[in-house]
Design a protein around this nucleic acid. Structure first.
Lengths: 259, 259
DNA sequence: CAATGTGAACTATTTCACAGCG
DNA sequence: CGCTGTGAAATAGTTCACATTG
């Protein structure tokens, strides 16, 4: 350390903060809806409401892209759709492969929003020989053996992994070796990839667990202590010298419960 | 402003930062894997590597839960599994309903990770009368008419929306009215919910677009300008007085490009 | 004069670096 | 002596509030 720049800056991309990038698709979707209703212009207030953010944030976000609004008027819908699309790289075609055509993979292949903006399902790949040749969403599934060739031939740079967790890292490695540099991972595993490869994950059970956390809190606000049964293994302190040494998160209240 | 506390603090939950909460499921998964391999203890370094974060962050995260480690040794795997499970509310049973049993809904219903930790699919609900009674993942699909009754009878507080975008808000409203206070939304729409209801969204096309953004940047680093064809509508400036007024994001360089 | 664009203030999150404990 | 737990520093992200402008 101490060498000035750390391992990887990686946070801002081209001056555009990551948090902003993550919201651009949201704005784009709202704008597309307006465009379809032939709305010519929107104010930051209106668009922000449609995208579910507040207007100051939206204006700040847009300010990173440039000055695309008109003071006193708002933003030209069509123009902004184009600008954001371009910024996101959606004015070009992205061939995508989906690996793992189980329930989820098939659902993804059938998902309309896939094809809509710039993305095109170039191939469906599965390890099961029995799947090979079967059409899913109008595309014949190909065997994993073909993976490298498919990637190369189609110039695929984005791969979607919808395999079981056990196969994900291996598939990932092969995708990366074949030239894929962006991966969307639906398998419940942490993928390790070389520098320069982006991974985003979509994880149902993580999302549910986060909801459960907040849900539990809500319940706890009404009835202070625990309520439901505890069907899970009881808490056994590993091997402390004493017994009354657990330090709670707030302050230093010992193991004794007040209520 | 000036009134001290703003509209809603909402950020920290019970002293635990939201960012930390979002990582707890990751730690839990890594710990569970260690537990299955009968590993008794882990250091923050090892666990962090398994979870794909850095060790300082992990230790800080755990510090919000309490002091559950042993200096010089590390963390007791079993004990930590329990503590995190409890913190996340996974020591209780969460009945969940899935609304919209299309490709995606079926995939979710079949997803093993669902049932694994604390979550139980209480019902599958679909608006298509033809689906009613059909078994998906071993559970008979019920019609939307039953929604309210199902929620009430099963004490469901978490709902998963896997309907088409057009139906999502309506379904959401009904879920909330029936008592659901946490929603996991797979439909590509912004849901509006009353205060006190949590919504998390999982959105394939947003994730892809974020990847495309970074992918485009990578390509741009090698060949400076654009490369592929532009099959989308050209950029037409709405109605400015002049023509050379676009202000780029960086500094105040006019429309003229140097290279 | 309504609505953008943006410095400045504030809040959240990450990272550093090291004291302190088992 | 190795590893946790944590203040303090650094970075990132959000919100305020208002000058500016079409």
């Amino acid at each position: 350390m101490a060498t000035g720049r750390t391992h990887r800056p990686a946070t801002r991309s081209r001056g555009i903060p990551e948090a902003t990038v993550a919201r651009l698709p949201l704005y784009l979707r709202a704008l597309t809806a307006l465009s379809e209703r032939s709305v010519p212009t929107v104010s930051s207030e209106e668009l922000a409401a449609a995208a579910g953010v507040n207007s100051a944030k939206l204006r700040k976000d847009f300010s990173y892209l440039g000055s695309y609004g008109t003071r006193g008027v708002g933003y030209d819908v069509e123009y902004l759709v184009y600008q954001i699309s371009r910024e996101l790289g959606l004015t070009q075609d992205w061939p995508v492969v989906i690996v793992g055509i189980g329930n989820l993979g098939a659902a993804l292949a059938n998902y309309g929003g896939f094809a809509s903006r710039g993305f095109r399902v170039a191939a469906l790949i599965d390890a099961d020989p029995a799947m090979a040749g079967k059409p899913v969403a109008g595309i014949a599934v190909q065997h994993t053996d073909e993976l490298e060739k498919i990637i190369t031939d189609n110039g695929v740079s984005i791969g979607v992994i919808a395999t079981p967790a056990g196969a994900a890292q291996q598939v990932c490695d092969r995708l990366v070796a074949a030239g894929v540099t962006s991966i969307l991972n639906f398998a419940p595993t942490v993928l390790s990839v070389p520098e320069g490869v982006d991974v985003r994950k979509v994880d149902l059970s993580i999302e549910l667990q986060i909801l459960a956390f907040h849900e539990q809190r809500k319940a706890g606000e009404e009835a202070s202590s625990q309520d439901a049964a505890q069907p899970v293994t009881p808490p056994v302190r590993p091997a402390p010298a004493d017994d009354s040494d657990r330090k709670g998160p707030d302050g230093d209240v010992p193991a004794v419960m007040p209520a």
